[in-house]
């Protein structure tokens, strides 16, 4: 498992520690009064089918660029103190961490709103693709709710 690093936008194969990532973000400012965390994890079923294997692929450079844009816009538009986004690629086991978004603000309201916005924006704009293998075969997921 990998600890938080200096970069607040990362795409990596390695797992991450949610606790370490939160502790790292708390160091951003002594004025943080609220933190919201979204953690996406590997589900066991997809459309009623049991998933045997999960894999994520991304477009390097563009994916990092889009995540950095989400972070910058989120901080600016919602008046956050800080935000971090970590997304894993490659093979993911069921139940494993996939994506982590941490939003930090002076108060809770802006962190809730920004966190929900950020994961929706990630799904809409960031070139990352999920491949699921079920009993029916292998499929590149076209969209997720």
């Amino acid at each position: 498992m990998r600890s938080a690093t200096e970069s607040k936008v990362r795409i990596q194969k390695e797992d991450f520690s949610v606790t370490d990532e939160i502790e790292f973000m708390k160091k951003s400012s002594r004025n943080i009064g609220g933190i919201t965390v979204f953690l996406g994890t590997g589900r066991e079923t997809s459309k009623g089918e049991k998933i045997a294997d999960l894999n994520f692929e991304h477009y390097p450079q563009m994916a990092e660029k889009k995540l950095a844009e989400i972070r910058e816009k989120g901080i600016a538009d919602f008046g956050l103190i800080d935000m971090s986004i970590v997304h894993r690629i490659g093979h993911i086991d069921i139940g494993d961490n996939i994506v982590l978004i941490i939003t930090c603000g002076e108060h809770r309201q802006e962190t809730f709103k920004a966190c929900e916005w950020a994961i929706s924006e990630l799904k809409r704009t960031t070139p990352i693709w999920k491949r699921e293998t079920t009993t029916k075969g292998e499929v590149w997921v076209q969209a997720t709710p």
């Binding site: 996406g40 991304h58 563009m62 996939i98 994506v99 990630l122 799904k123 960031t126 590149w140 997720t144």
Partner: peptide, 11 residues
């Protein structure tokens, strides 16, 4: 130029 199928990141 990158040809991009619909994205499915997140979880």
């Amino acid at each position: 130029i990158a040809l991009l199928p619909p994205f499915s990141g997140g979880s």
